[in-house]
Every structure is written in structure tokens, then in C-alpha cells.
Design a protein around this nucleic acid. Structure first.
Length: 946
RNA sequence: GCGGAAUUGCCGGAGUGGUCAAACGGAGCAGACUCAAAAUCUGUUGGCUUAGUGUCUACGCAGGUUCGAACCCUGCAUUCCGCACCA
């Protein structure tokens, strides 16, 4: 096998079979796969997705398309830079990863430079694809980032274009920040806190003389229910000056604010107990008490909170506890009677919980004291969801804001309240991490607001509408992903498209920024059409005017920095290949990359160059389990090649799944397929051009099988349903072959056998190209099977169905005989009598015909075996059969004559004799012979054993 | 919570209104071949059965529509994926 593989790789390369050259006489097919990120070897996940494109490309090529299949490599982003940095620091985990991949210590050292990754992995990935027999035009491969100056220019052009159309906007954005290294910290660069993100809190001001106490909350919806404040008596709070005001909050928060667009000047401190007992003015003008609480955490929120006992069980239980605690009240000089007068203020009507849901919750969970943290945390979560989705604002919200929002759901009014309070100056925004994040510098991270961040305005209404238009015109494989796409197109809003760190292209108008990886990979497929011809052109000559001319036909091409002739050639090639006909990848990319691809195409290109179709596939499992490094079932492509061979791996991958469901790579199957493919080489070469010339009915059956199966398979190929295609085109084909060989006593008709061998080999070629090329050559065929025409399968004819029905009847008869023999416990029967009904009712068919003409405009019938009287009466049942027949697309235009039937039957009977080694007699039951005729039924024959 | 997908026999997985006790594959069982194993082939894999084109129970659960539901509708339960600035 390995020799065969190498032989054909060499031949393909020498003949440049897969180099795509524009040919205006041929229809074209341009398929792409999102370029893989090159920080490691390619694995089965890449393999499965890419095989779908590879098989489709090969199929399309055989269908007569001029196919462009190109592949690039993605280097943009931070993972490589981060990994390189970790190697430079000799970090054990990262070093271990490379060690596991088989690198020596010396080699690993080189990976301290990000460039080393970019130089090492793309050729490896190329080798993996090539070794597996991918039909890629490698002249067109490229890497991203400014390491590739031509691509760099292309991306710059793209972003200038987007900016020109006002799709790139500037704004603020919170990032996780390491204050020691002064860098943003991505998920993978953290020692602790993977998955934690910045969360927006509302800072609420509470007026105390000339200062404000600042509390933080997620629940601005309950702001009118504030009954008091809690401060920790032992915490020393900071007094700061910011925004022209004096704020009191924890020192921790004061420090964090500095990173969030606040100009912070510390002017003093105040200990919590100095505040207790005083009163502050809250947002609605009421004066409320400041109370002591020891449950407060200095590093969470602002270190002090406002209390809404109606909708916060924590606040309520704390209030209850304090009201019982006379000693503490005395200590801080709180008027106990006044404190006891503090009652929750209902602000929301919560379905099933009334207006003081916190109280009901405490009762429900039987909470007696604020120390019962477990229960209280549970309540907090439950109540938050409940309020958000099931509660509405009560009468207090009728007049308080400009708009009356009484009765409005919290979900719908929360944002409005935020805006209003913001206008009134009572609140501000503060970001806090959802959990502790420690950077690799050991610095504890905080949230920084980046204020000159650039965004792609995917929320733009016109842009979104255009994207929807594009989607509506696209074919999706499978189409059930459409609703998901539709949802995503509407849901996407501003996408931060620039980064401070990593590899990439610099933002053309602000070179301190790099273009982010998901944003530089949206329309690059256009680059495949021209890049291989750019290699000899100085990248400096590739200005925006150049791309405008080539890709958008803007300008006359006379003032470019290169010859118009060259430019025109490029332009022509782009226009030949574009639009992209097919792009396929895993389903997880629906909500970012694939949607971005639509957005950016409609933003930049005219409608005729919008993408035509997308394919989405599931994830890959190995032997039914999720592939993961920890489970030890993580398979990289080159290992699959080594262990199972290219053809078997390809076959196994594609027969492992289709559609959006997860696919399963079954290693047992890979092994057995390898054996079966070898057997097929053997069979094909040994049986070609052999056999008899005489043509029998079974030969017609075989021909019709080839036709029927081939038709079905071709339909599956068109829909990228490769598993079904293999099911038909290989397993069903082989099953038919088995039956055929058995029926002909291994003496097939020469022409039929040749046709079968050729067909089977050709239709397997997209899946297992190496052995197919080899067989093709051994059969004495000229040229490559890779570019041989896909067979034209004829529409099923009368004869197809006739022989089909006959063979099916025969198979059924065989089965019946077996079961009768079994029941009768006879091993070697001396005689088998078969009764077959002869009274085909022509009046029955005429009724059928009539029914057909009435119901549908179809003039053809399927063949029905019948003797049963009830069919003549029961028109309803007949119409059912017709319905099904029409739906299944099967048709037959004539009814067999009974003589045909019997002649063909005789041949079958001979076969039965052979099988059972007994005397077989065919008997025709006359109408008068009721007992026997009764036993013959549609599609069946009666059997009598002696 | 939102959005998407799913739930079928021992397992994987077809099937989207009647030919469904349900394709195909795997696994198991029995048999053939063999000294034996592998491979291959044949049969078989819901219950009952007077053995019949019989009958009952079945396609997550509960209802509904229909002459008829694995398939359509409603509700519920469970599982998976995504919820972003990360490739």
C-alpha cells in the first residue's frame, strides 16, 4: 500500500494534476477550508473537516468542474507568541507539550521564537495533507501576518475598505489586565482563573454631606427598595476625588478604578465605624441608616453595600439579625427602635413570590441566620433569575423615571433604568472580574478599560440586513444550521477587532494595534485566486488601488505601480474563480468565523462575489469517545496515516459521520477497511475482462443495481452526505456484487463485470484515490482516475425495476423456503414445490391507472404482484401504494406480461435447485385451484414442502 | 436564562404520515468450513404463539390531530453545543 501511495503522489505531482488553471470553457468549483492555526500538528478534527472538502473537490473534478482547492495557514493571534514566551521561560508544561510531540531539547529551545513555530508547522501540515492524498494546488498556499508582506497588504486593504464604509468604529472595551506586566491576559496565559471575564457592575452613589458612599450592584432594578447601607466597621475606606466628586469606597476598588477611565485622587481615609449610625440620602431622596456588617469583603464590589431586603435574602437576614442584636446597636449608638422600624420596601412583583420574595425564599429554605452561606448563595442565584425573567416593576416605578415602567418586566426595563440613572448622575459603571485571575507574572489581574479599541460594527442594521440577504441566497449543508445562522447574524454586535499582542497585521491607520485573528480571516479566500502570481511582485507595489482594481474593478488600472497587463491577468483569474462555491468547517464556527465571513463579504464585495454555500460538520470522536489528550485517544493525522494508511483513514473518517452530528472515527473500522480495499484491488484486477458473453436476466439485474445505487450515491455526493454515499457506493455495491457472483456461480457476464469494476473504482476515487489510481492503471486505462469522468447513471428504466422485483421475489422466496425448512425441521428436502399465482388481474391495473390519472398527472405504474381479491375492492389501499410510488420517484410504464414472468422465473428456479440441492417444481395455481391460489400473496409465492 | 441540536432495538445509526418489529453497520448467539484459530459464508437477536400475510408491547414522558403516528401539533423531562472578542 505504501508503495502505491508514494507512486501516485509522485505521479500526481509530476503531472501537476491538481494545479488549478482558469479555463473559461469549463465551469469552476472553488472550495475552501478555514486555514488551521499552526501551533501544533494537525489532528483528526482537522482531518474530518478537511476530508469533506477534499472528497467534494475530487468529486466535483470528476463531474467536470475546474476545481480550485487551495490551503493556507493561520498564524495570527496570541497563542503562538504566548507559547513561545513560555518556552523562553522554560516553563515545564509548555516544554512538556513539545517534548511529547517528539522534539529534542535543542529543537525545543528554538521554539522560544514565535517565528520558529510559523516556520516549522505549516510545512508539516502541508506534508500531512499531501501524504493523505489531498488534491490541493500547493502553489497557492500562504501564511498570514506581516511575515507574509503580500497578505499583509491585502488585509490592510480590507480594513481600509471597511473603515471607508464606516464598519470599523472606535470604542471602549474592558480587558483582563496584568498590572505587573502591563498587558492584557488571555485565557491561556493565566495561572489561575481560566474562563473568568470582566463583569459590569453599577456603582450607586449615596449622599453623605459633601461626599458619596459608593456601593456596587448588579441589581439596579431594585434601586428604589434601598432601606439602609452596610459598611464594615473595621475596614478603612478611602476618600477619593473623581469626576469632581468625593467618593468613599474601599482602597482596593479605588485602585481598580484608576484602570477604568477614572481619574482618581486619594484625599483621605475613614474607618467604617465612623460612618455607622449616620444617614445618607439615596436616589429617591429618602434618608437611610448606615449599619454595621462584618460579612463585607474589602476586595469585592466597593467594600460596602446598599441593602434591598425585599429582593435580597442576604440583606434581609442581615437586617433581621441586627434587629435582634441590641448589643451591637448599643456599641455603635444605633437607635434600636428606629432600626426595628426598618422594613423591606416592595419594588417588584415577582410571580408566585409577591413583592417581598426574599422573605418567601428565607422561609422556603428555612434560613435562620446569615451564616448559612450555602443556602443563601443558592437563594441569590435562584432569585436573580426569577426576578430577571419573571418579575415586573411595581407602582413605585410609575412616576420615578421619565417613562412609566410600572408592570414592565425587569428583563425589559433594566437597561432603561441604567440609562436613566446614568443621566441623573446617581450611578457609574465599574468592571470587576467574575473570579480571581492570576497572570503568569504572578500578578493578580484586574479589569482595564481600553479606550481606543476598534470594533467591527456587526450590529449595524444595514450591514446585518445585507448579511441576511446573502444567507438567504446560500445553500447550507445541512440546511438545519440556517436558523442558527439567522440567530447569530442578528445577535452579533460590536466585535473588538484589534489586539495589543500577538502576531498579525498592523491596523493601517493606527499601527499600535494588531488586527485580531478572527477578523483577518474573513475574505482571504479571494487571496488564493491571485497570491501565487504575486510572489514575484514587490509587495510595496500592492497598494489599495491595486486591490481595488483587481478585486473590485475600481478604476481603469492605468495608475497602478505595476504593469496593467499583469494586473489584468490577476484580475481575470480572480474573476474566474470568485465567488467561493463552498466553505466547510466545524459547527462551532457558525457563531463567529462563518458569520464574519458573510458579513465581510457583503461589506466589501458586490453581490456576484458573495459566498455560495457553507458546509458545517460535527466534532470528531474516537471510538465513541471525545478525543482528548488526557484520555490518550488524541490522534494526529500522521499517526492515522502510519497506523491505517491513507485510503483507509480517509474512508473511515468520512464514513464516521455526516451532517451536523458528531462523527466517530472507528479505529477497528479503519483496520478492516484497509484489508477490504486490498481485497478490492485483487478482485478488480483478477476479474476484469473475464466472464461469459451470454446475457441473462441476472446480468440485467446487476446492471440495474449499478444504476440504482449509482444514482442514489451521486445524489448523496451532491449534498455532501459522504457517509450515505459510502454506504451506497461501497457497501451496497459490494453487497450487490456478492449476490451477483453467487447467482452466476462466479461466472459473470464480461461486460457487466467490467462495468461494475470500473464504476466501483471510479466512484470510490474521491475517497480512496490511491488504490483507485492503481487499479485504474492495472485495468489498462489511460490517464488519472482522479480526473476521469464520473459515470452517468441512467434514470431507472422499466427493465431495472422489472429485474429488481424479480430478484427481490427470488430473495424473499429463498428466505421463505429456509424458514419453512426450518420449521419443518427438514435439512435435505427431496422436493420443493412453489406455487405462483398466474391470474394477474388486468382489470386491477386498469383501476390503478384510472386512480393515477385522477390523483396525479402521472402515467406510470409500479409493478404489483397480486392475486388477492381484496385489492380489487379496496381502492383506498391502492391509492396508498400509488402515493408511495409517486413519492419514491420510482416509475414503470408497462406491465409485465405473465409469460415474461414465468420465463424469468425458470432461471431463478434453476438457481434454487442449485442452492438447496433438491428438486424444485414451479406450479401455476389456477383460479379454480382456490386453496393454492389463496396462499400466493403479493410479492410472495406459496411454498409446499414434501 | 437565551439560541441551536438531539432522545429509535445490546450498541452506533437510517427512517419525517400508511409496504415498520423498523434499513445499514457493529457486537452477541447458533451453524457451515477448519486439526484449531482468523477470515469467509448461512441463520438468528422484543414478548406470546393454536406458528397464521397471527397477536400484544415498543421509537424519552404525557396529551392532541388523523381512518391511521417513530414521523405532525402542545406541554414536560433529559443530554450535548454555543453565549463572544478566543483560535
Amino acid at each position: 500500500m505504501e508503495e502505491i501511495r508514494k507512486k501516485w503522489l509522485k505521479k500526481w505531482e509530476e503531472a501537476k494534476v491538481f494545479e488549478a488553471i482558469p479555463d473559461s470553457n469549463k465551469k469552476k468549483f472553488f472550495g475552501t477550508l478555514p486555514y488551521p492555526y499552526v501551533n501544533s500538528y494537525l489532528h483528526l478534527g482537522h482531518f474530518y473537516s478537511s476530508m469533506r472538502l477534499e472528497a467534494f473537490s475530487r468529486y466535483k473534478r470528476m463531474k467536470g468542474f475546474n476545481v480550485l482547492y487551495a490551503q493556507g495557514w493561520h498564524c495570527t493571534g496570541s497563542p503562538i507568541v504566548n507559547a513561545a514566551k513560555r518556552i523562553a521561560e522554560n516553563e515545564p508544561i509548555q516544554v512538556g507539550i513539545l517534548k511529547k510531540q517528539g522534539f529534542s531539547d535543542d529543537e525545543i529551545k528554538k521554539f522560544a521564537d514565535p517565528k520558529a513555530w510559523v516556520e516549522y508547522f505549516p510545512p508539516q501540515a502541508q506534508a500531512d495533507f499531501t501524504d493523505m492524498g489531498y488534491s490541493i494546488d500547493w502553489r497557492r498556499q500562504f501564511i498570514t501576518t506581516d511575515l507574509n508582506p503580500h497578505y499583509d497588504k491585502f488585509i490592510k486593504w480590507q480594513f481600509n475598505k471597511l473603515k471607508e464604509k464606516n464598519y470599523v468604529v472606535k470604542g471602549k472595551f474592558p480587558v483582563v489586565w496584568d498590572p505587573i506586566e502591563n498587558t492584557p491576559v488571555g485565557d491561556h496565559a493565566r495561572l489561575e482563573g481560566e474562563g473568568e471575564t470582566p463583569q459590569e457592575f453599577i456603582l450607586v452613589k449615596h449622599k453623605l454631606d459633601d461626599k458619596f458612599l459608593i456601593s456596587a450592584t448588579l441589581r439596579q432594578d431594585t434601586i428604589l427598595g434601598i432601606t439602609n447601607l452596610y459598611v464594615h466597621p473595621e475596614i478603612v475606606y478611602s476618600i477619593i476625588e473623581t469626576k469632581g466628586e468625593k467618593w468613599i469606597l474601599s482602597e482596593h476598588t479605588a485602585n481598580n478604578l484608576k484602570f477604568q477611565d477614572y481619574d482618581v485622587k486619594k484625599i483621605g481615609t475613614i474607618k467604617g465605624d465612623e460612618l455607622i449610625g449616620k444617614k445618607v440620602e439615596v436616589v429617591d431622596g429618602r434618608k437611610v441608616l448606615i449599619l454595621p456588617a462584618t460579612f463585607l469583603n474589602e476586595t469585592f464590589g466597593t467594600g460596602l453595600v446598599h441593602s434591598v431586603p425585599s429582593d435580597s435574602a442576604d440583606d434581609l437576614i442581615a437586617l433581621y439579625d441586627l434587629q435582634k442584636d441590641e448589643e451591637t446597636c448599643k456599641k455603635y449608638g444605633i437607635d434600636i427602635e428606629e432600626l426595628k422600624g426598618v422594613k423591606p420596601i416592595g419594588v417588584l412583583n415577582t410571580e408566585g413570590y409577591g413583592d417581598i420574595p426574599a422573605k418567601k425564599m428565607l422561609e422556603k429554605y428555612n434560613v435562620k441566620h446569615q451564616n448559612e452561606r450555602g443556602k443563601l448563595d443558592k437563594i441569590k442565584k435562584e432569585l436573580y433569575k426569577l426576578s430577571y425573567y419573571n418579575a415586573s416593576f411595581n407602582h413605585l416605578y410609575k412616576d420615578f423615571f421619565d417613562k412609566n415602567i410600572e408592570g414592565v418586566k425587569v428583563e425589559d426595563g433594566k437597561e432603561y433604568i441604567k440609562e436613566e440613572l446614568m443621566k441623573m448622575g446617581w450611578i457609574d459603571i465599574y468592571y470587576q472580574l467574575t473570579g480571581k485571575v492570576v497572570a503568569r507574572s504572578l500578578g493578580e489581574c484586574l479589569v482595564k478599560i481600553v479606550d481606543n479599541q476598534w470594533f467591527l460594527a456587526y450590529g449595524d442594521e444595514d450591514w446585518t440586513n445585507k448579511a441576511r440577504e446573502c444567507l438567504d441566497g446560500m445553500k447550507l449543508f445541512p440546511d438545519k444550521t440556517r436558523s442558527q445562522f439567522n440567530y447569530v447574524l442578528g445577535w452579533l454586535h460590536n466585535w473588538a477587532c484589534t489586539r495589543e499582542l500577538g502576531l498579525g497585521t498592523k491596523l493601517p491607520w493606527d499601527e499600535s494595534w494588531l488586527i485580531e485573528s478572527l477578523s483577518d480571516s474573513t475574505i482571504y479566500m479571494a487571496f488564493y485566486t491571485i497570491n501565487y502570481k504575486l510572489k514575484n511582485i514587490d509587495s510595496k507595489k500592492l497598494d489599495d488601488a491595486f486591490f481595488n482594481y483587481i478585486l473590485l474593478s475600481e478604476g481603469d488600472g492605468n495608475n497602478l505601480q505595476l504593469d496593467k497587463e499583469i494586473a489584468d491577468e490577476l484580475k481575470e483569474e480572480f474573476e474566474y474563480w470568485y465567488p467561493m462555491d463552498f466553505r466547510t468547517t466545524g459547527k462551532d464556527l457558525i457563531q463567529n468565523h462563518m458569520s464574519f465571513c458573510i458579513f465581510n463579504h457583503v461589506a466589501i464585495f458586490p453581490k456576484k462575489h458573495w459566498p455560495k454555500s457553507f458546509g458545517l460538520n460535527g466534532h470528531v470522536m474516537v471510538n465513541g469517545e471525545k478525543m482528548s489528550k488526557s484520555k490518550g485517544n488524541f490522534i494526529i493525522m500522521r499517526d492515522a496515516l502510519k497506523n491505517y494508511g491513507a485510503d483507509a483513514s480517509r474512508f473511515t473518517a468520512l464514513s464516521g459521520g455526516e451532517g451536523i452530528d458528531d462523527a466517530n472515527f472507528d479505529t477497528e473500522m479503519a483496520k478492516s477497511i484497509d484489508i477490504k480495499l486490498n481485497q478490492w484491488i485483487e478482485f478488480a484486477t483478477q476479474n476484469y475482462n473475464k466472464g461469459r458473453d451470454e446475457k441473462k436476466s441476472i446480468d440485467e439485474w446487476m446492471e440495474s443495481q449499478i444504476n440504482l445505487i449509482g444514482t442514489d450515491m451521486t445524489n448523496f455526493m451532491e449534498e455532501t452526505l459522504f457517509r450515505s454515499a459510502l454506504q451506497k457506493g461501497y457497501f451496497d455495491m459490494q453487497r450487490a456484487l456478492k449476490w451477483y457472483m453467487r447467482r452466476t456461480n462466479n461466472n459473470p457476464n464480461k461486460d457487466v463485470m467490467n462495468k461494475f469494476i470500473e464504476t466501483q473504482t471510479i466512484i470510490l476515487a474521491p475517497f480512496t484515490p490511491f488504490i483507485c489510481e492503481e487499479i485504474w492503471e492495472k485495468l489498462g486505462k489511460d490517464g488519472f482516475i482522479s480526473i476521469t469522468d464520473w459515470p452517468e447513471f441512467e434514470k431507472p428504466k422499466e427493465s431495472d425495476l422489472k429485474s429488481q422485483v424479480l430478484e427481490d421475489t427470488l430473495k424473499n422466496t429463498l428466505e421463505d423456503i429456509s424458514s419453512v425448512l426450518k420449521l419443518a425441521k427438514i435439512k435435505k428436502p427431496s422436493k420443493i414445490k412453489i406455487f405462483i399465482s398466474a391470474n394477474w388481474k388486468y382489470d386491477f391495473y386498469s383501476k390503478l391507472n384510472e386512480e393515477l390519472k385522477n390523483s396525479r398527472n402521472v402515467g406510470e405504474l409500479i409493478r404489483i404482484f397480486s392475486t388477492d381479491e381484496k385489492y380489487r375492492e379496496n381502492i383506498k389501499e391502492i391509492s396508498t401504494i400509488i402515493q408511495k410510488t409517486v413519492k419514491s420517484g420510482k416509475s414503470i410504464d408497462k406491465i409485465l406480461s405473465q409469460d415474461d414472468e414465468l420465463n424469468n422465473m425458470q432461471e431463478s428456479i434453476d438457481f434454487l435447485v442449485n442452492i438447496f440441492n433438491a428438486e424444485v417444481e414451479i406450479m401455476v395455481a389456477e383460479k379454480s385451484d382456490e386453496n393454492k391460489a389463496k396462499q400466493a400473496r403479493p410479492g410472495k409465492v406459496a411454498i409446499l414442502v414434501e
